[in-house]
């Protein structure tokens, strides 16, 4: 039987698709704001909401959403007060959230606390048809908000003081971002789990940062990466019989290590190539300067020297001066006379 022949797997895959797309779209802003662990904290708080839902026989998704959004608002308001006690207040809120959740679930009849693992670390069998509907609404709302306010959220995450000085509503935007995080946490509670969602917000962004050149590119790439690891992790979980949240996060971390290594290797190669060129130019008979006979070409904040049709940029290091290649000649002479220097 194929994976899509099971109703529960169809729902799990739908949920993983949505969370894989949404979590990084919100997470990139948290990374930029150096508040990577906010999602983790709100996951703790959401657990109390889950417990309240279980105890009162309401849908735990809704009660978790209420708890996480309230927690997000409290955190931002405490942060806005900007006092040293803020750090402690956050810790109290976070640990109060998870402790409250564990104790309340323990009070539940018929040993409901055995479901704790599924809420914390994700399970593929738990997504109900109603959940899929709620998740779809959350996903659309979060993505639409990011599309609408993304530039402002970037501005506030990048330089909060500047944003305040030029009159952007800093507290309001921070509240919006925290609420988006709360919604994302709830979206994740079936497949990824409340304790692991933070990883799916942060790790795809960390991978995308290594590859992208712009913020917009980072967001797009992070979403694609999140989508791929989330869906493939859920699928692996089905075949391997492992908890889905842990599987997804391990896949993401493996990808992060792989890309980090590839980027490091590429940089090392570029450095070696640079060193080889340096060696060539170490044999250069003179230092370029005002009277060396080579044409000076202004380039950004330094001067290059035209050297047989390519440009030499003096590069001072503790080993002395050497010349970097700064591309073909930009003025006049066609670069036909070769690249030997």
């Amino acid at each position: 039987m194929g994976i899509l022949d099971y109703d529960f797997m169809q729902r799990a895959l739908l949920a993983s698709l949505m969370v894989g797309l949404v979590a990084p779209a919100v997470g990139v802003f948290l990374v930029q704001r150096r508040l990577s662990l906010l999602g983790d904290g709100l996951g703790h708080v959401a657990l109390t909401g889950v417990a309240v839902g279980v105890l009162t026989a309401n849908s735990p998704v809704w009660t978790a959403l209420v708890a996480a959004v309230l927690g997000a608002a409290v955190i931002e308001l405490v942060r806005a007060r900007g006092r040293t006690s803020g750090d402690v207040a956050l810790a109290v809120l976070f640990y109060g959230g998870i402790a409250g959740g564990v104790v309340l679930l323990g009070l539940a009849p018929r040993g409901q606390a055995t479901n704790l693992d599924a809420y914390l670390f994700g399970a593929i069998t738990t997504t109900s048809p109603q959940d899929v509907g709620v998740f779809a609404v959350i996903a659309v709302v979060v993505l639409a908000t990011v599309a609408l306010l993304g530039q402002r959220l970037y501005a506030v995450s990048d330089d909060e003081e500047y944003a305040r000085a030029v009159g952007l509503p800093v507290l309001g935007l921070n509240l919006v971002l925290a609420t988006l995080v709360a919604c994302t946490v709830v979206l994740s509670m079936r497949v990824v789990g409340l304790l692991l969602i933070s990883a799916l917000m942060i790790v795809p962004s960390a991978i995308a940062q290594l590859l992208a050149r712009s913020f917009r590119e980072t967001v797009g790439l992070a979403c694609v990466i999140g989508l791929v690891v989330s869906v493939s992790g859920t699928t692996t979980s089905f075949y391997a019989g492992t908890p889905s949240g842990g599987t997804i996060v391990l896949l993401a971390i493996a990808l992060f290590l792989l890309v980090s290594a590839a980027v490091a290797l590429q940089e090392a190669t570029a450095r070696r190539r640079h060193r080889r060129r340096v060696d060539v130019h170490d044999a250069h008979p003179h230092d370029h300067g005002a009277d060396c006979g080579h044409v000076a070409v202004p380039h950004d904040d330094h001067v290059d020297y035209d050297h047989d049709g390519h440009l030499h940029a003096p590069h001072r290091t503790d080993r002395g001066v050497h010349y970097d290649e700064h591309g073909e000649h930009a003025v006049g002479v066609p670069p036909s006379s070769g690249r030997t220097g």
Binding site: V28, Q32, R34, Y154, D158, Q209, S214, F215, R216
Partner: peptide, 14 residues
């Protein structure tokens, strides 16, 4: 910042 951004993006904030 932590996330890459282009000159155009940073100036756009202004």
């Amino acid at each position: 910042g932590a996330v890459p951004a282009t000159v155009r993006e940073v100036v756009g904030v202004g």
